[in-house]
Structure formats: C-alpha cells, structure tokens
Amino acid sequence: VVEKVLDRRVVKGQVEYLLKWKGFSEEHNTWEPEKNLDCPELISEFMKK
C-alpha cells in the first residue's frame, strides 16, 4: 500500500513516481510507472506542492 508520493520523473517518455510504502522504511522506496498506480488521491496531493 502506498503511503506517500515523494517525487516525479519522466523516463523515456513515461511518468514515474517515487513511492513511500506503508510499513516500510525509506530504503524500500521505489520508482513506479504511473500506469501501474491506483492512488490518484496521493498523486493529486503531491502535485499540489
């Protein structure tokens, strides 16, 4: 389960987000493609920053 979106990048035309996973430490954060995500409210919250 995604706890928080930390960053955004574009790699080869694909948007990816750096995710903080609930119950895991920062060392387990991962970059995931936008198309694989199902957390629009967290993405929206990140984009407001």
Rank of each mutant, 00 (worst) to 15 (best):
E26K: 12
S44A: 14
F24G: 11
W21E: 01
L18N: 05
E41R: 11
N36V: 13
L42Y: 07
E34H: 07
G13F: 01
V5K: 00
Q14W: 04
W21F: 11
L19E: 00
G13W: 03
N36F: 08
Y17K: 00
V15I: 12
W31I: 01
V2K: 03
R9S: 01
E26W: 09
L19D: 02
S25L: 06
K4M: 09
N36D: 14
E3T: 04
M47Q: 13
V5D: 00
M47N: 12
S25Q: 05
M47F: 10
K12V: 07
V2G: 08
Q14V: 12
H28P: 03
L19W: 01
V10G: 03
Q14H: 11
S44M: 11
L6W: 02
E41I: 11
C39I: 12
N36Q: 14
L19G: 01
S44I: 10
N36S: 15
K4C: 03
E34Y: 04
L42R: 11
V5T: 02
E26P: 13
D7W: 01
D38V: 07
K49L: 10
E45R: 07
V5E: 01
W21P: 02
G23D: 15
E27L: 11
K48V: 09
M47L: 12
Y17D: 01
K12F: 09
K49T: 10
K22Y: 06
H28R: 11
D7C: 04
I43A: 05
T30I: 04
Y17V: 04
K35M: 15
E16D: 03
H28N: 02
H28G: 10
R9V: 01
E27N: 05
L19F: 02
L37A: 09
D7E: 12
K12H: 09
C39S: 09
V2C: 13
L6F: 03
V10C: 06
E32M: 15
Y17M: 03
L19H: 05
E3L: 03
G13K: 04
E41D: 15
L18H: 08
N29W: 04
H28E: 02
K49I: 12
E41Y: 07
I43Q: 03
E3Y: 04
E45A: 05
P40H: 15
G23L: 03
F24V: 14
S25N: 13
F46L: 08
R8I: 06
K49H: 14
N36L: 08
F24A: 10
V15L: 07
V1G: 09
D7A: 15
F46V: 03
K22W: 11
R8P: 00
V10P: 01
P33A: 15
E3I: 03
L42V: 08
Q14A: 08
D7H: 04
Y17A: 00
C39Q: 07
G13T: 07
V15W: 05
E34V: 08
K22L: 13
K48E: 14
W21H: 05
K20R: 10
E45P: 03
W31Q: 04
N29H: 06
E16K: 03
K4D: 04
E41L: 13
K35D: 12
K22F: 13
E16H: 15
C39K: 06
E27D: 14
K4L: 07
S25C: 09
V15H: 10
V5L: 12
P40E: 13
P33K: 07
S25V: 04
V5F: 01
V15E: 07
L18S: 02
V15Y: 05
E3C: 05
V2Q: 03
L42A: 11
L6G: 02
K4A: 09
V5W: 00
M47R: 11
F24Y: 12
L18R: 10
L6T: 07
V10M: 14
V2S: 04
E34A: 10
E34P: 03
R9I: 00
Y17C: 02
S25A: 09
V2W: 07
V5Y: 00
Q14L: 08
K35T: 13
L6K: 11
F24N: 09
D7F: 02
N36H: 12
P33C: 13
R9Y: 00
I43H: 00
N29R: 07
E41N: 11
C39T: 06
T30D: 04
S44G: 14
S25M: 08
E34F: 04
V11P: 00
Y17S: 00
L19Q: 01
Y17L: 06
E34C: 06
K4N: 06
K12R: 13
N29I: 07
D7T: 02
N36K: 12
F46N: 01
V11A: 11
E3P: 00
I43F: 03
V15N: 03
H28Q: 12
V10Q: 15
L19R: 01
E3A: 05
K49M: 13
T30A: 08
C39F: 04
V5S: 00
E3K: 02
M47Y: 07
E3W: 02
L18Q: 09
V11Q: 14
D38E: 14
H28D: 15
R8H: 07
K48F: 02
T30G: 06
E27G: 12
R8G: 03
W31G: 01
L37N: 04
D7I: 00
H28K: 04
E27V: 13
L6I: 11
K20I: 01
D38A: 11
K20H: 07
E34L: 06
K12P: 01
K48I: 06
V15R: 04
T30F: 01
E34G: 09
T30V: 05
L42N: 03
S44R: 12
K4E: 08
S44Y: 09
V11T: 10
N36M: 10
E34N: 01
E26R: 10
E45K: 10
P40K: 14
S44C: 12
D38R: 15
E3N: 03
T30E: 04
W31M: 01
E3G: 03
V5I: 14
K20L: 04
V15T: 14
N36E: 14
C39E: 09
E27F: 14
L18T: 00
K4V: 06
D38K: 09
G23W: 08
L6Q: 06
K22R: 14
L42G: 03
S44Q: 14
H28I: 05
E32K: 08
K22D: 10
V15D: 03
W31T: 00
F46Y: 13
K22Q: 08
K35Q: 12
M47G: 13
K48M: 15
V1F: 07
W31V: 01
S44P: 05
E26G: 10
H28F: 08
S44L: 09
L6C: 07
H28Y: 09
N29G: 07
L42S: 05
E34M: 07
E26I: 10
K22G: 08
K35P: 08
K49Q: 06
S25Y: 02
P33Q: 15
E32C: 15
P33R: 11
P33G: 11
L18M: 06
V1C: 04
K20D: 01
L18E: 05
S44H: 13
V5M: 02
E32N: 09
F24E: 08
N29Y: 07
